[in-house]
Design a protein around this nucleic acid. Structure first.
Lengths: 145, 145
DNA sequence: GTGATAACGAGAATCATTCTCACCGCAATC
DNA sequence: GATTGCGGTGAGAATGATTCTCGTTATCAC
């Protein structure tokens, strides 16, 4: 689903599957997100959409769309940028992110081995788990050269 | 160091130990933070400092102080509030936070068992680890009654 | 004490995000 | 085919946390 080769229809299906009404603007935001291998801010996406063929889309609409898609779990939001949120079209299963501090490349990582630790911590303090976020930052091999 | 019984001198020592110049305002921010069992935003701290005995301290100073203290690792910053940062006077060793979604009680947790997983993930993707954040959210036992 | 330097306070400026509101597209209805 | 209802949209204003500016003041080494 991530590949940029996805068709308009694929995006429409994706939206429908998540109970989101299909509109031209929402499809455009999705298409733009699919082209971005890493993550992008609402501002960035808006500027790109504007430049690309002068699509007229409102900044507020981009924010509304991203917030809706995030709520419906179609996109992930990352907070690693302090002061603004980044959005990313992600796989549909729960996962976390490993981000390169230099080139901002994003790698999805699964919970393999983490869940045991999580369970233990929640149990130890008698908490009922509702959510957890893990963000790993490092330097990728390319950026260390 | 966390207890509210800490003296002015304790705070001054704490600042000095972290290469931070001691000023009246910094001591006041620390004192206010020490009284807060969980975390507080810059705005909140500022209002409290204002109300308490009409201390005249500028909002910008509170921000500058918190940001300096955070850089010097005297306080921790938590981002669980989306849109604003929370600050907290913490222990001096690396740790993470378990926050109650309802009452915002904060519990410090250590890395016991987590570091292995971290190392494996960074190694697997050939990243040089520079940082990581983990925030666990749940409902504490009191809030489930 | 004195001077260099860092910190302060107040208010203006910034910047991401959200709100307002008039307008538009589309589907169901007449 | 015209009408009506309604969610979605665009533009710009509003919001709110944070940062900047700059004249003033405190701190510290000498």
């Amino acid at each position: 689903m991530k590949p940029a080769q996805a068709t308009e229809q694929d995006f429409a299906d994706l939206l429908a599957r998540h109970d989101v009404q299909v509109t031209r603007q929402r499809l455009e935001v999705l298409r733009e997100l699919a082209v971005e291998p890493n993550d992008a801010t609402a501002q960035t996406l808006w500027k790109r959409l504007r430049e690309r063929s002068g699509a007229t889309i409102g900044l507020a609409t981009v924010y509304r769309t991203l917030s809706l898609l995030s709520e419906k779990r179609v996109v992930d939001t990352l907070a690693h940028n302090e002061g603004e949120l980044c959005y990313r079209l992600c796989g549909e299963t729960h996962h976390h992110h490993l981000v390169c501090a230099n080139c901002h490349r994003v790698i999805e990582i699964d919970e393999q081995g983490l869940s045991d630790w999580l369970e233990r911590v929640f149990a130890k303090h008698d908490f009922l788990a509702t959510a957890h976020t893990v963000e790993l930052t490092g330097l990728c091999s390319d950026c260390r050269k």
